[in-house]
Amino acid sequence: MMALLKREPLDRIPVWGSVVGFSAINVGYTIADMYSDPQKAFDAMLWTAEQYGFQDIPVIFWAPKLGEVKMPEGEFSQAPTVSRYLVTTEEEAWKLELPDVKREGRRATMECGKLVVESGGPFVNVAIMPFTYAGSLCGVEQLCKWMMKKPELAHRLLRLSTDRNVERARYWADTFGTEHLLPYTAEPTTSNQIISPKHFEEFALPYVKEVHEKILALGCKHILCHICGEQNMNLPYWAQVPMGDPGIASFGHEVDLDVAGKYFPNDIIMGNVEPAVIQTGTPAQVYELTRICIEKGRKHPGGFMLAPGCEMPPKAPPYNVWTMMKAVSDFGWYE
């Protein structure tokens, strides 16, 4: 991955496994451990990355100070969820003040980052998500309604969220140094499965753009941006968001990699083997889908990393994951 970021020639395509819950199950931990126990999260992701040859950076993505939270439990949960939102009324939204960034409940995330740096890892991730974070404050449905009926209220939450994301990046940069920081933007709530491109332009673009500009001004060189889900109608807007030099633009399976490459000619593109196929498909289907991604991605002048289209399904059959890597071994070499 370092060679890719330095725009140096590569011998083969690097792979980002997006292995969070999959790592936990792979090494015998619980999915909840990946969001609460820095050492277990670090070990599980590192070991799993070593096992499969992934480039993943161990990280805990979670902000527990968002109302009441339920950690993943039981057989079918995948991630923590907000069971009661911080904001439930308009009055609360107007009065909301977020806690100091150092007290926003990311101790485990910070501890995991320290383990990465101590182990000589090149980068620490910090989560950036101005629009999706605003949705986590009041609930996505409520944010959607306020965008329509009380846009000034939606903008207030987005302003709070944007400032918080910048403060967080600055805090992480002060702690780890910008040379060690690889901010990771993930914005599933901006997908066209939820909002229109018109709403994206008004309520997401200015804020995502502002956060990225400010993070890059801090001195970070690259941002890894997961453009999650069905985002085809938003791509002209995403293309206006600076990602770094180069940035890494990651896509869900809903976006064709050839199309993605046209919008991000100078950035690394990443993606996008369909997670549901990795989980439920046959090894032959996974192999073929991976081959197609490689053939499309390898042509991209900005560089390419193979990855699942979203988080690796925690319960994906290990043989399917191995098959994905076999396709990389068979087709993923540069001349």
């Binding site: 009926k149 066209n192 499965q193 229109s196």
Partner: peptide, 14 residues
């Protein structure tokens, strides 16, 4: 037809 999205649907629902 992707002329309405979730925000519009939620208000229609209301």
């Amino acid at each position: 037809k992707k002329e309405y999205f979730v925000p519009e649907l939620l208000l229609c629902s209301d």
